[in-house]
């Protein structure tokens, strides 16, 4: 049974690929490939009727972004999605800090849905869209 949307908990964090990518340069293809992604449990990927590498839209109360879905094979994490730190993940993170300076970076609910017709924006496109510069 394929579902339209999944309500899941978003975790953001580091991956070594994203680490390498950011050091190669924020405009580098390595960075794009490693940061504009969202890792899902194979079970969840199936539930959305997706293939690994398909575009998905991640939406939170703070915004939404299109990224590539990837299968997370290391262990089970059903009900959770993981996005590497970076511009794409931050498009859905909130600025609320609970008055201690730390924004809402992880552990909040997002919706993930397939977005086959929408492109994943590059760094420059995303900057232009969000900040007009």
């Amino acid at each position: 049974m394929v579902e339209q949307k999944l309500r899941v908990t978003l975790i953001t964090g580091r991956t070594i690929e994203q680490g390498v990518g950011k050091e190669m340069g924020k405009g580098s293809p390595e960075y794009f490939d490693s940061a504009a992604v969202c890792f899902l449990d194979p079970v969840d990927i199936k539930r959305l009727g997706l293939k690994s590498g398909a575009n998905v839209k991640v939406t939170s109360p703070y915004g939404s972004v299109i990224v590539k879905a990837k299968r997370y094979t290391r262990g089970t994490m059903s009900g959770m999605v993981f996005m590497p730190c970076g511009l794409w993940a931050n498009s859905v993170c909130g600025s609320n800090t609970d008055s201690i300076g730390m924004p809402t970076f992880r552990g909040f609910t997002v919706e993930v849905e397939p977005a086959p017709d929408m492109p994943v924006l590059t760094l420059d496109e995303l900057l232009k869209q969000e900040f007009g510069k």
Binding site: K26, G63, G86, L87, N90, S95, P103, T104, E130, F131
Partner: peptide, 12 residues
């Protein structure tokens, strides 16, 4: 690089 690491709202 807060451009990449701050939430969108703060950056705007």
């Amino acid at each position: 690089d807060p451009g990449a690491h701050f939430p969108k709202g703060a950056m705007q």
